[in-house]
């Protein structure tokens, strides 16, 4: 009765084979089938950005993608950022700058900003605000998030210069 497919997805470097309902969203697949609950649903209509994950490197809304559409692709979620207890510079900057309060929107913002910084390593404040405008946060007023992203760009630049 239900339409299912076998899919094979690499998530955070690990390969998974699962049989899924074709109507299952990618976000539900990550949360329910793989137990990766770091990806959150805030609206399920593509506006809030909380569910943003990276599919083959591209930051996308996981509520607007079906799990079957990730077949054969590589997905990164917030769980795949830190190596063990070592936070990435972006995560560290979020902590340093108090860029999260309740933390519910944070995974989607981290995913979006990580992609953004790879593409735009020396952003202006206006660039960051533009890139952040697809993610809703009700707690922070965004300022500390913007500052954390700018700090990360700075940190990464110094690391590159040193290398």
């Amino acid at each position: 009765m239900s339409d299912t497919r076998n899919i094979s997805v690499v998530v955070n470097g690990k390969s998974y084979q699962r049989t899924v309902d074709t109507r299952r969203t990618l976000g539900d697949f990550l949360r329910l089938d793989l137990g990766l609950t770091g990806t959150h649903f805030g609206c399920e209509h593509g506006v809030c950005g909380a569910c943003t994950v990276r599919v083959d490197g591209t930051a996308v809304r996981s509520c607007l993608m079906l799990a079957v559409q990730a077949n054969g692709k590589s997905v990164q979620t917030v769980e795949g950022m830190a190596e063990g207890d070592i936070l990435t510079p972006l995560q560290t900057a979020f902590r340093d700058r108090h860029a999260l309060q309740c933390g519910f929107c944070t995974p989607g913002i981290l995913m979006t900003m990580a992609e953004f910084l790879e593409e735009n390593p020396a952003p202006s404040e206006a660039d960051v605000r533009d890139a952040l405008s697809g993610n809703l946060c009700r707690c922070t007023g965004y300022q500390n998030i913007v500052d954390a992203v700018l700090q990360t760009a700075d940190t990464l630049r110094k690391t590159r210069d040193a290398a």
Binding site: L36, T37, G38, T39, T77, V78, E79, M81, A82, D85, L87, Q91, F94, R95, L100, G103, F104, T106, P107, L110
Partner: peptide
């Protein structure tokens, strides 16, 4: 922060 930043909330 650590838990919330790593998806362990």
């Amino acid at each position: 922060d650590f838990d919330l930043l790593t998806g362990r909330g």
